[in-house]
């Protein structure tokens, strides 16, 4: 496991008592944690555990019923995300953040070419030189191991693994500091998964990215994350270092989860 480049300052992201109700039904309750630069946090749990609700609250795609989510902006100031105006929030989302969806079609423009998919964020922040945008797109396709000869093909002709890698390139092109990932390897074949995990691991290490990864797959959590949060029924069951939680699980539910892993 790559280790983070720690800096001494404040955390990058801080969640305090994040709670979200859907009417009277609990989405997630009272989640608090801090994420430092270069750290990867896995949120694990089964379907309905509230992990995706939490991810959406953290990434401002959903407004929490109560609680605070703060983020350290590039100027070093810690800002309450839900106090930002919409323009600031959207700018953050397309420059300093990335969001990798489980289904790549949700995060890609399926009808435009791979090059334009990667270049969009650059154009959104004002890049106006076609040659430079294309060059950058090429270099990113190469980084995510997509043949640069496919730059003008649209992702409808790509395999699931390629689409997912394209989505990652599209997110990383603006040099974000924080990536949210929702089951990034879900729905992929095992061999394709392994390749993607290794790639993610490399990129996270190379760019010192922080990430919040939602997954139900403990192997993914072990490979990618430094720390993890185990959730069930909207509650945090256990938190700690990833290997600590997996090798010395304390809560009954975590013990059940760990003992349910199939051994190969």
């Amino acid at each position: 496991m790559n280790l983070p480049v720690f800096d001494d300052g404040a955390p990058l992201l801080r969640a305090s008592g994040v709670t979200r109700y859907y009417g009277t039904r609990i989405g997630c309750t009272d989640v608090s944690f801090e994420l430092w630069p270069g750290e990867v946090l896995a949120v694990v749990g089964e379907s309905g555990s509230g992990k995706t609700t939490l991810l959406n609250c953290l990434s401002t795609r959903l407004v929490p019923t109560s609680g605070v989510v703060e983020y350290r902006m590039r100027d070093g100031a810690m800002r309450d995300l839900f106090q930002l105006n919409e323009a600031e929030r959207r700018l953050l989302m397309r420059t300093d953040w990335g969001f990798v969806h489980q289904n790549p079609a949700d995060g890609l423009r399926m009808t435009v070419s791979a090059g334009a998919n990667v270049g969009e964020r650059l154009m959104a922040v004002g890049a106006r030189n076609y040659g430079a945008i294309r060059g950058e797109a090429e270099s990113w396709l190469d980084k995510v191991e997509i043949d640069t000869g496919r730059i003008d093909d649209d992702p409808r002709g790509f395999s699931g693994g390629m689409r997912q890698r394209l989505q990652i390139a599209r997110n990383l092109v603006t040099g974000p500091r924080l990536i949210f990932m929702d089951e990034p390897t879900g729905g992929l074949d095992v061999s394709v998964q392994a390749r993607l995990l290794d790639l993610l691991r490399q990129l996270v290490g190379e760019f010192g990215l922080s990430a919040v990864v939602v997954t139900h797959d403990l192997a993914v959590a072990r490979l990618l994350s430094h720390r993890m949060i185990v959730m069930r029924g909207g509650n945090v069951i256990e938190t700690g270092l990833t290997d600590q939680v997996l090798d010395d699980p304390r809560a009954p539910y975590t013990q059940l989860l760990v003992s349910s892993i199939l051994q190969v």
Binding site: E86, A87, R90, R109, V112, S113, G115, A116, G119, E120, R121, L122, M123, A124, V125, R128, Y130, I133, R134, I151, D152
Partner: peptide, 18 residues
């Protein structure tokens, strides 16, 4: 409203690419 017009250039980019 937010002057997020990157998408228009995506369209022009596609033209040049194709």
């Amino acid at each position: 409203a937010l002057q997020e017009y990157g998408l228009m250039h995506v369209k022009l980019y596609e033209d040049i690419a194709r």
